[in-house]
Write a protein that binds this DNA or RNA. Structure first.
Lengths: 193, 193
DNA sequence: GAATTGTCGACCAGTTTATTCGAATGCATT
DNA sequence: AATGCATTCGAATAAACTGGTCGACAATTC
């Protein structure tokens, strides 16, 4: 097709859907290929590996979310709740990547209630990983691709970032600054700025 | 635990969730076991095979749907649309088994529009299989467990049943009779009456 | 304390999987 | 038409995974 980069995007969109539903491990190259109406081996002309595709998908989705959130911050007028709602809605677009989607919505918790709930049950390290899972989708990524340099770095970064307060819900603070801090923590090292 | 039959139900409920999300093939015994906090091999004390579990799940879900639909028929007062709506809502409870869930709702089609859409694209045999897929969930069941006697029979029965009109949408008929006929076709041989 | 009921880890044979590679196909330029 | 380059694919493979078995152990019941 016309353009190599354009074709990569096609793959990202198509594979992203499959990944988001089945997770990294359960998604096979053959499945991705079939969705693209291609031979399995042809994909390797555009991507180095399955991980490579997944990485591209996560990057793509994370970038969208980052932009959405940034826009959200700018468009906030004042009340916390309004903003929370806005951010929450935007979150959904990213959560489609997440297997925790159901856990969140089945229980009718919003994103923040959900995080606060699990927060009580896990210690810091586990929570950090959970956050990574929730925001960067794909529990499977953590468990199956953990040996990749890239992911290992992302986890490390997230662990460090734990110092930045994530939970502002009931506190009065400068929200804009805080959200920006969170964005930095969440996406530092994940999304090229 | 207390009761062998009770434990089977626990498995059905738990495994059902996993099956409904990942399909038959992509769901592993280990996953089912982990969800039950058991060793993989222990499950074989209660079920003969993976197929056996899946069959139990489908039976369980189909029975619920059958009951719901039967109730729906009885509670219908008159207008077609009201009934369609009611049945449609009930359908959802079963559709969670179906991988076509997204196809239906992403496109904002209702169940009947959806079926009519695909009807134009497929011949009778394919349509029959599609129906089986849609109503009994699990595309994977058809493609991967097709060698099981049980499923083969179900497909045969469904093929035969094609003579009973499924699409009454724009026609004036005795709805109650027709729905009953459909129920018989759909579940004959699948759900023990 | 023996018999039954339930659980599990280790293991196996068969299958699936990601990835490679060389050959085939198009497709433009000379 | 011959050359070179860009794409696609089928076949092959080594590694990982899978459903299912089996015998040993633990718990419960008699």
């Amino acid at each position: 097709m016309i353009n190599k980069e354009e074709f990569r995007k096609k793959v990202i969109l198509s594979a992203g859907q499959i990944f988001s539903h089945y997770g990294f491990k359960k998604t096979s190259m053959e499945e991705i290929a079939k969705a693209l109406k291609m031979g399995k081996s042809s994909i390797y002309y555009y991507f180095e590996s399955k991980e490579d595709i997944f990485e591209a998908v996560v990057l793509y989705e994370a970038n969208i979310l980052r932009n959405d959130l940034t826009t959200a911050i700018k468009s906030v007028e004042s009340p916390i709740d309004k903003m929370k709602k806005y951010v929450f809605v935007r979150m959904k677009s990213f959560e489609k990547l997440s297997n925790y989607y159901n856990a969140i919505f089945d229980k009718n918790l919003d994103h923040f209630d959900f995080i606060e709930t699990i927060r009580e049950k896990y210690d810091r390290e586990e929570l950090a990983i959970l956050r990574l899972i929730i925001y960067h989708g794909e529990r499977k990524k953590v468990f199956n691709v953990v040996n990749s340099e890239y992911t290992a770095m992302a986890i490390q970064t997230t662990l460090k970032g734990l110092e930045v307060p994530l939970f502002w819900k009931k506190k009065e603070v400068n929200i804009e600054n805080r959200l920006n801090a969170i964005l930095d923590v969440l996406f530092y090292g994940i999304v090229k700025k």
